[in-house]
Amino acid sequence: MTNSITAIPNPEGGVLQAESLTFSHDGGAPVFADVSFSVRPQETLALLGASGCGKSTLLRLLAGLEKPLQGSVKFLGEPLVQPHPRSALVFQQASLLPWLNVADNVSFGLDFRHQPRINTQERKTRVQNALQAVGMAGHEKSSPAQLSGGMAQRVALARALAREPQLLFADEPFSALDPITRGEMQSLMVDVVHRWHTAALLVTHDIDEAILVADRILLMGGAPAKIIAEWTVDLPHPRTVYPHAIQELRQEILEAFRGCNPLGNHQVHQRKLSPAVTAIQPSHFYI
């Protein structure tokens, strides 16, 4: 133990740590203030909040695309100075590059200078695995223009997976899709996040999506925004078989959300939703 001097890349603190982050656009009123939380390894964390409360801004900050006014972000224990090569982004729109075919879209950027060097074979394998995982194997040569919205979003997810991320940032990735496709994509997300052993930060304003996908839910609200509540969702997947539990938690989140007024002064709720309880008494939750 004593002779171990190399830093362990996966400290107790988690994949990502946000430490009292404050941010404002061009010196205006702060969008959010004093936001602290951490993302644990392989955990899916949902960031829930009303439109315009600063979720996307927070995500960009955590991804290293924007600098905080105050506070700091740590990725794998190290202060984040630029986007980390082991993080990946998925947007609301697939935003595939139309001049590249599907396979080239998935491998896009893997050969950039500040990315870890991998050889051509490894790159091919990654593209294949990622496309396989999202159910798009066989579409390698297709052009993005030929894909439906859901298929394009699958390719966008594959593009993120091909980077073998330790943290996947997703900003309302399914909100532009029709309800049926959205449902499919939500279970796909759960599936690939587990298979890739990656943590995920899912920004959404869909309460049910947060409940169905996330291990933990953070509720953002107020002006400037803060984390006003937190839930641990400990139900096995697929969660669609627990309609009562989902209904209850949705209600609770909505109430917490209404209780939050713009003047602040909230207490952080800490609730845990555990499977044993829901299995026996679907209408009760332990704190």
Partner: peptide, 17 residues
């Protein structure tokens, strides 16, 4: 597309890339 630029920034692309 704003997202293409975000994507290239998230890949720490050099100005030339």
């Amino acid at each position: 597309d704003e997202n293409w630029l975000l994507l290239s920034r998230s890949l720490s692309a050099t100005p030339w890339e």
